[in-house]
Every structure is written in C-alpha cells, then in structure tokens.
Nucleic acid binder design. Structure first.
Length: 409
DNA sequence: CAGGTC
DNA sequence: GCTGG
C-alpha cells in the first residue's frame, strides 16, 4: 500500500553483505546519486525521485526506500513506464520495489560470489573483506554511455558535477527532495540538437562536448530504434558456467563491445564500462589507470610483453581476470577497483584499529606471551599503514601533510 | 593528477 | 590534449 505522492519509508529486504549502498553508490559506477541529510541517498529514476537509507547497526537486513512522484503526475503514468503495475483507484501500488531490485541487480548471490572469488584468488581474499556488498548496477545503457564518455581524463567528483549540469540543462524536472531539484536523465534526442556541443562547452565539458553531441546524433538518428538496448545481455544469470568461459568472453559481449567502439569518444575502456554497468555483460573488465596499477602490483603485469598499457595488454588483463574470476569477472574487478580508490582509503586503517582493540582484549584475558607478540606486530603494521594514509585529503583528516604521496600497497 | 580517446 | 576539485 504505497502512497503515490507523499512516500513513506518502505522496506526492501536485502542484507548489508548483499548490498552496501555507501560503497556501491560512491565507487564510480553511477554519477547521479546525492547524499543528503548525512545518510540519505537520493536520485531520479524512471520519472520519480527515490531516496534510500541503510543503517548497518540498526537493521543490517533491510534498505529503506521512499518515493517522490512529480506533483502533476496522473496516476495513469505509473503503468505507462514499461513494466508498470496496474493502478486501481486509490489503492495504488507502484513498481518502485521491482525497479530497485532490477537497478541494484539483486538476483546474483553476492555472498556466494565473494566466497568463490576468494577461493580462486588470494589477493581478492585479502582485499575484499573491507569492501563487501559491492554490486554491479543495471543502469540505463544511455546514461552509462554518457557518464563514461565524460570519464576520460577526469575524476569522479567532476564527472558527477558534469552529469548533474547535463540533467539540469536538458532533463525534465521531476521534483524536489530536501529543497534540491531532481531532473530526469536527458534522452539521446534531447542531446541531438545543433547547439548542444557549444552549450556543453559552456558547461565545462571540454573536448567531451563534441563526443557527446556526436554520439547523441548517432544513437537517436543514425541507429535503429532501441539499438543501444539491443546490445544487452539477455542470457539468464548462470553461476555454473564460469569454468568454461572463454578468455575473451561470450560472443554477445564481444559483439556489443565492438559495436560501441564505433561511437565518438568510446574506446575499449568506456565500451567495457557500458557493457558491464549498462548492458549486463558480467565478464566485461574495464581496464583504467587503477586496474592497470592493480594488475602490475598484484598480478605480475608490467613486465616483458606487457610493459605498457597497449591494446594487447588491455586484452591480456581482461582475459587473465576472466580466467581467474569467471563469468562475473567484472563484478570482482569492481571490488578491487573500489578498494583502490582514495575515497575509501580511511577504511584501510579504521577497521585494523578495531582489530587492534580486540586483540588487546584477548591478550589481557589470556595473559599468554605468544599472543602479545602477535599484537605488537599488528600494531607496527597499523602504524606503517597510518603513515601512508595521512596524506588523504578528501576526508578532512587533520594530520599534517607530507611532501610526497607514496602509492599504497 | 583524474576510471582515455581521437 | 580540456578542465577544475
């Protein structure tokens, strides 16, 4: 019994291990979610504004969601958005829960996948515990395409700002939440006009303005209707096929990737991001600077044939991870990617401090000397880590900054 | 320097 | 080679 306009908080049954909002919405997959009121994530999705809350301490088994519909939205609009639910008089049941289950891609059992990846890969097992609940979203393919065309030579904060400006300028207003306006994502048609490139340059898109304008024309005018969506993976999720996956991925993935490369501003990395996060191809492994660093640091790339990130190296890294992690290699890749982001660097110290306290307690209860030595070693490891993290600047850390920033190990 | 592309 | 957090 969801009310249409003044949404109340509803429960979505999904555990923290299956979905971490904080990690998933900040790891550079989607660029539109806004964190309001400290703990509330809000974004427009298919003609409505959705707010989400997750309180790990109070209820680790649910995500709370609230819907805000446009103030002038007739009830019939509910059933007009594709797979909407029938609307009957006042007892209105909207399709937002189904939308959320689809958007957050809740079908695969992430806990089982983490266990499998940990079994196959010691490095994953080492990095993943502080980054549980990272899911690959099923975003709208067009939105993913636009977002990742903006991502080249750019950072997540500015990508988010650019996408926000794009929605404010070209997307229809849906409504306000906490006095913030929320617009829908602009359609390809709305970005296909002749003045779009110059407008986008004024909005600070730089050379990406031309890419977006060209791509919008291609998608809306030169390709057949629904072309982008037709590149989606329609095969059912099958966790048993991972052992027989070809290194290069399934034929459908390879074809989609190749077709996307024809667009302006879309190279192999952007194409893989769209394949993975917009088209449902779980074996797609986008290789960017972070993944390249990870491949060199933890998987022995960067030597011999693969000394630099050429196309051959790019493909070799993807193939390696597909062999190692299987059909959902892109999901596992995203966990390690998140673990490499400076945005989350504080986690690499926070939880070890908790571990330290627990170890001290165990020590005082046992009083055994063997235990004490392990504690001392752990403390030293923490101190070493803390020194490396003190240059983190995006979390208002009050340490004084050192001259040079060393790459984290 | 930042999730690359032409 | 565009641009700003």
């Amino acid at each position: 019994m969801n009310s249409i306009r003044t949404g109340e908080w509803q429960k979505l049954a999904v555990s923290l291990a299956e979905l971490s909002l904080d990690t998933t919405l900040r790891c550079g997959q989607s660029f539109r979610w806004k964190k309001l009121n400290e703990d509330e994530w809000t974004c427009s999705l298919r003609g409505r504004v959705i707010s989400l809350k997750q309180d790990p301490k109070q209820d680790p088994n649910h995500v709370l969601y609230k819907v805000t519909w446009p103030s002038n939205s007739p009830l019939t609009k509910l059933s007009s958005s594709g797979k909407g639910v029938k609307v009957e008089d006042d007892s209105t049941k909207d399709d937002t829960e189904a939308l959320l289950r689809h958007y957050f891609n809740l079908e695969p059992n992430l806990t089982e996948l983490y266990e499998r990846w940990s079994m196959a890969d010691p490095n994953f097992k080492k990095r993943a515990p502080k980054f549980t609940g990272v899911r690959i979203l099923k975003q709208d393919a067009w939105e993913a395409l636009v977002g990742f065309i903006c991502s080249s030579n750019n950072n997540i904060a500015r990508i988010s700002q650019m996408v926000n400006n794009l929605c404010l300028s070209y997307g229809p207003l849906i409504g306000h939440v906490h006095d913030q306006p929320f617009h829908d994502f602009p359609t390809p048609e709305s970005l296909a006009g002749p003045e779009v490139e110059s407008q986008l340059r004024k909005l600070g898109f730089g050379y990406r303005a031309k890419y977006l304008a060209r791509t919008a024309v291609i998608v809306s005018k030169e390709k057949p209707e629904n072309w982008l969506e037709s590149l989606s993976n329609t095969e059912p999720f099958d966790e048993t096929e991972w052992k027989t996956l070809k290194p290069g991925g399934r034929p459908g993935y390879r074809k989609s990737h190749e077709e996307l490369l024809a667009l302006q501003g879309v190279g192999p990395k952007v194409a893989d991001c769209v394949c993975l996060m917009g088209l449902g191809w779980g074996e797609s492994v986008p290789v960017d600077t972070h993944v390249w660093q990870i491949a060199q640091r933890d998987y022995k790339f960067g030597k011999g044939k693969h000394k630099s990130l050429t196309k051959a190296t790019y493909d070799a890294i993807g193939n390696h991870f597909r062999l190692l992690w299987g059909e959902e290699a892109g999901w596992a890749h995203s966990v390690l990617f998140a673990a490499d982001l400076r945005t989350f660097a504080i986690r690499l110290t926070e939880k070890t401090e908790v571990q330290e306290e627990l170890q001290i307690k165990a020590e005082s209860e046992d009083g055994v000397i063997v235990q004490a030595t392990t504690v001392v070693k752990k403390r030293e490891a923490i101190r070493e880590e803390t020194i490396k993290e003190e240059t983190t600047d995006d979390l208002n850390v009050v340490f004084s900054t050192t001259a040079k920033r060393t790459r984290r190990r």
